[in-house]
Design a protein around this nucleic acid. Structure first.
Lengths: 341, 341
DNA sequence: GTTAGCACTCGATTGATTAGAGTGCTAACA
DNA sequence: TGTTAGCACTCTAATCAATCGAGTGCTAAC
């Protein structure tokens, strides 16, 4: 037995109906819902087959059917195929450029959550090929030196260093030149111990400052390890009874609050070089622990050359995939375009 | 009729018992619970009086009594009085100095939530008397200028400026001197239009850069308006049935996620100069909208001279005030001491 | 002033009944 | 041979009455 045209039509009708109502759907409903003009009895036979094939299941004997993960998967794959062909006309940009990127992303997350009525997350862009662009030491007061480190992509890090004895302007200038001539344009891998010891030697009695700056540089470049994640719409979990019982909600909310697990999801997503489009994880497919009852849909955006981040929607398995995918694509497009002309 | 010794003992017993069990407490329980050696009938009479006085109330006719907000208030006031006298011996510090303050605070919030089993929040320290300490413009590449602004308390802000034509080293040096001689040591109020126009005049053709820098300075100094708030233990709301129903939980979680309302609470707290100790808001006393069914306990810490922030616990009205106050005092002490010797 | 006793209230629990949605199967039909 | 009407059966959810029990308020006696 295999899935013929009619079975697929019925499956689709079941899923559509279940997405709308959240209730198990019975044979009579389908008999009227579709234009197949089949009696409920026939539908029942087909449904028994679909269940045997693993696409739908029954919560209990006398209930209607609900889609299984396998059923959703089929539905979504087909859906995505259609979407691929569709040339979307995007609405005008709803996002304004913000002074600070984090405010922009917070707004974006909120917008996403409001539009979809699911929980939304968005990771701050992570710069992959981090090269040093510029280092500047400045004297703030007698014993404090400010080190400013600018990394490719205009990510800026500051570190305050305390020195025992005051440095005069000339020494500071020398150190600045020393640092910049040696380090500019290099990535973390390219800064080796030989280079560092050469610099220390040239710095003479101020070699400890060099050491401190190098540490700060190392930290600045790899700083994206604990990447920032903005979330919104946690309360939307409560809109879906299958997620709203105390235990489940508690777990979901903790995951959303602590962000550690979301962070892993983002890391995985960004690590996958081929992943340029939309990813859908249904139920047990999820890479995030404790979200077996949810579906997760993600997209990767690129704010500026190499500044990649992930946006995602988390909701019940019976989410409106179509709407979610559309919203993600729209937001992705907006973010992609925002800082490029 | 007024509150005599015996009534107070009974009230206290009722509250203690209710805090433990979360169930309305009856006269028989109190009759055994206290060492007053009174029969349940006598207790009943006293309870009727306490109800008339407004300290306790009955959920329904045949139930026991629960404390009213007024009852809690009396209890807490008395409790705090006792605590005041008590010379607390603090446990050794559980917090390690962290490289970044925000990580420290995140950890602190988590610790607080775990220890108390309530929801915890902590606001990043807010610097009140913001004076400019140091400004530095540096050329990053041909058309980009990095402005670094250091404010008293070593809060650092960076802004990237784009210029039409490259600036040479000399010009940059001049601008740096111009900015620092005019602005260093001043607060926002002290930077007036006259000063700005004088600087612009001196800057000649580069007056637009001055304008941009001034904007950045203004932003840096007042940047603490959207103060950072770290939260933890949101899931703890679910441990208390009176907060765990969908609607209420939904509201609380949103408040915790959006942080806007918490921010107002913190602002109020810090604005109150006299407020050095512990603040307890019970039920309807709360300044945070939508938390009428909660109690909020806050404390103000001072990480470094003038760097004040607020820590807070939010839980059910029947929270273990004693434990909460103890934990807040402990954490406050730790934060207060961390960066001072 | 305290207490024993008792009638009363009211929420929570239990159990039985019913209604209704839906199924699977069989037999008849086109 | 595929489709359908019909029917017995299953299971959940809702309803209702009965009961239980914790707790109260009041009265009368100590």
């Amino acid at each position: 037995m295999q899935l013929d045209e009619r079975k697929y039509t019925i499956l689709q009708a079941i899923i559509r109906n279940y997405l709308e109502t959240g209730e198990p759907v019975g044979s009579r409903t389908i008999s009227k819902y579709t234009d197949l003009n089949l009696s409920s009895a026939t539908i029942r036979n087909e449904m028994a087959d679909l269940e045997e094939l693993g696409y739908i299941l029954q919560p209990h004997t006398s209930a209607g059917r609900i889609p299984s993960d396998k059923g959703y998967r089929l539905y979504v794959d087909k859906l995505m195929e259609e979407k691929e062909r569709e040339v979307e006309e995007m609405k005008e940009s709803l996002l304004e450029k913000e002074g600070k990127v984090d405010n922009l992303l917070k707004k974006a997350a909120k917008m996403l959550a409001n539009n979809t009525e699911y929980a939304a997350m968005i990771s701050a862009p992570q710069y992959r090929r981090n090269k040093l662009k510029f280092i500047q030491l400045s004297r703030v007061d007698a014993t404090q030196i400010l080190a400013v480190i600018v990394v490719e992509g205009n990510v800026i890090k500051n570190t305050m260093l305390t020195v025992d004895e005051a440095l005069n302007d000339e020494t500071l200038l020398k150190l600045n030149i020393l640092l910049n001539t040696h380090l500019n344009g290099l990535s973390l891998d390219e800064i080796n111990l030989g280079m560092i010891s050469a610099m220390k030697q040239q710095a003479g009695i101020h070699s400890d400052i060099i050491a401190n700056v190098i540490d700060a540089v190392a930290e600045a470049i790899k700083a994206d390890e604990d990447l920032e994640i903005y979330t919104s719409g946690t309360k939307n979990f409560f809109k879906y009874p299958e997620l709203a019982d105390n235990e489940r909600a508690s777990e979901l909310i903790t995951t959303f609050e602590e962000k550690q697990l979301l962070s892993e999801l983002v890391q995985d997503n960004l690590a996958d070089e081929n992943n340029t489009g939309i990813q859908v994880y249904i139920g047990s497919e999820t890479p995030v622990q404790g979200m077996k009852d949810c579906s997760i849909v993600t997209a990767t955006y690129e704010l500026d050359e190499g500044m990649k981040g992930t946006i995602g929607i988390i909701g019940p398995k019976r989410m409106d995939y179509e709407k979610v995918v559309k919203n993600l694509k729209l937001l992705k497009r907006q973010l992609d375009d925002l800082y490029r002309k």
